[in-house]
Computed example of a mutant assay.
Amino acid sequence: MTSLSRRQALAAAAAGVGAMATPGVATAASPSRRPAPAISREAFGQIGGVTVYRYTLVASGGLTVRILTYGGIVQSVQVPDGRGRPVDIVLGFATLDDYVAHNSPEAGGGVYFGALVGRYANRIAKGTFTLDGATYQVPVNNNGNALHGGTAGFDKKVWTPTVEHGPDSVGLRLEYVSPDGEMGFPGTLTTRATYTLDNSGNLTLTFRATTDRPTVVNLTNHTYWNLAGESSGDVYGHLLHLDADRYTPVDGTQIPTGELLSVHGTPMDFTRPTAIGARVAQADPQLMTGQGYDLNWVVDQGRSAGLALAARAVDPRSGRTLTVWTTQPGVQFYSGNFLTGTLVGTGGTAYRQSYGFALETQNFPDAPNHAAFPSPVLRPGEVYQHTTVYGLSTMRP
């Protein structure tokens, strides 16, 4: 994990320029001189007689990531503080039973802490779409719309794990085969999600999927971040930069209208680092619909054909920075509006409104029903492949 001076990090945040300009490039000692990251596993419970495992990935400096085979869930990301003590900076649950009971709308939670979501992340209007002249219906589970793949999406599946090793990294490859017709989606979708942790402080998530029939695909991760620590309170003081000049406005059920509107002069303008809580309570129709931020921003890809900067968040109290690069065209910023204090997290704290925020790199919501949006269609012989890098750094006191 890269360590920065406080002056460097605050200057980077103010300028909207990252602490790390390019993912995978360390600014500290050469990674080749550090021990290779390690990985281990332990049983975390059972679902229907199938054992769920928790994998622990540890990089130099003590950066530790724990991932479940159930839902591909990032259960914790522990970052040492200035005294070397580990601090968990993502929201999650302590037990598998809690994830099964509370991590979806059907279970009364609807939070999707840390999960891989699909086949179609975000919303599909009324759960219906037409592809090649045929109409398909996905179960609705959110204001009359389908959210995150319907009532039993990828977040509820037990994925098959494989460990991968590199000279400066360790990875966990998770695979799931979604049968033709599952949740109403056509085609057998063979999906691979690979988490890779390296000694530069990067957690990389790469998706790969193929199909035997034309289908629609949109995969993402739904981790909630609190850079001050998952039990520390709200994230309103975090500074957020979104490298996006436009966003996709929504109607009263949070379905995109099809427009791409400028963020300038609106509460959606994070082109310069701005506190998450600075404008969240403004009487803006978009904020009122989502009870806070819950919108898709159009990532400024610039001239990049690969990874592009999507977002950067800084917690001024702890000095921790999260930088997100992606190959996806959008990022859904969600400010944890529907956390109500009824869910108790890994540290024993009840999660209240905005105790965490999500940055879901994705295709646009409801893209199957908007021809002008980037196409979500995957056909036989094609490969769906997207990468997101979460870069973690800490400024020195």
Rank of each mutant, 00 (worst) to 15 (best):
L205H: 03
T69G: 02
P139V: 06
R317I: 10
T346C: 06
I47W: 10
Q46N: 09
L203E: 02
T266N: 05
L242F: 00
G92D: 04
I255D: 11
V389M: 03
F154P: 01
L68T: 02
G109Q: 12
L287P: 01
D180M: 09
F338I: 08
R312F: 14
S318F: 00
A313W: 02
G292H: 02
R246T: 11
H102C: 11
V158T: 10
T210K: 12
A13Y: 00
P365K: 08
V314L: 15
L239G: 05
M183I: 10
F129W: 03
A146H: 02
I124N: 03
T151W: 04
V79Y: 01
D234H: 13
T220L: 09
A313N: 05
G184L: 10
V377C: 04
G391M: 06
M268F: 15
E42M: 11
T27P: 00
R396C: 09
F93V: 00
G302S: 07
S3T: 15
N142R: 07
I89M: 02
Q362W: 05
V170T: 14
V314T: 15
D212H: 09
A107Q: 15
N218C: 08
M395C: 15
T206V: 14
P37V: 10
T387N: 05
P374Q: 02
I276A: 02
T223N: 07
D132Q: 11
A125S: 13
H165D: 08
V25L: 08
